[in-house]
């Protein structure tokens, strides 16, 4: 199971890197989303996938999942939700002002203004 997760995370990271390196702004935003998904899955896998029961105190349960990675993922998801939303607003504004979503045309320094 861990191996499968590792391969899945690898695929997510590959796709994320490919998308982030592309020129289109919206693809970059999607790429950052995939990147954070990969990172969240990685936390889950790194905490160990064992544990049959939910991490709630109950009679006779000894084999329960590690609650900490789940708490970490929840926090990380909230944060990446906020950042992605903000990035979408930014990308939209940048598109509206620059009239392009091509990152190649957005490079430059003061002389280009």
């Amino acid at each position: 199971m861990e191996l499968l997760m590792a391969i899945l995370i690898g695929i997510l990271f590959t796709a994320a890197v490919y998308l982030i390196l592309s020129r289109s702004l919206i693809k970059i935003v999607i790429g950052t989303g995939l990147l954070s998904h990969g990172a969240h899955l990685l936390i889950l896998t790194m905490g160990g996938l064992g544990g049959a029961s939910p991490p709630v105190l109950a009679e006779g349960v000894t084999d329960f999942a590690d609650p900490l990675p789940q708490a970490l993922i929840l926090t990380a998801i909230v944060i990446s939700f906020g950042v992605t939303a903000f990035m979408l607003v930014m990308a939209y504004r940048a598109y509206a002002v620059h009239k392009t979503d091509d990152m190649n045309q957005m490079k430059g320094n003061d002389e280009h203004d």
Binding site: A85, F86, L88, V89, A96
Partner: peptide, 13 residues
């Protein structure tokens, strides 16, 4: 509050 603020600011114009 924050999610709707963001959506409004995208959809606003």
């Amino acid at each position: 509050g924050s999610a709707i603020t963001i959506i409004q600011s995208i959809g606003g114009d």
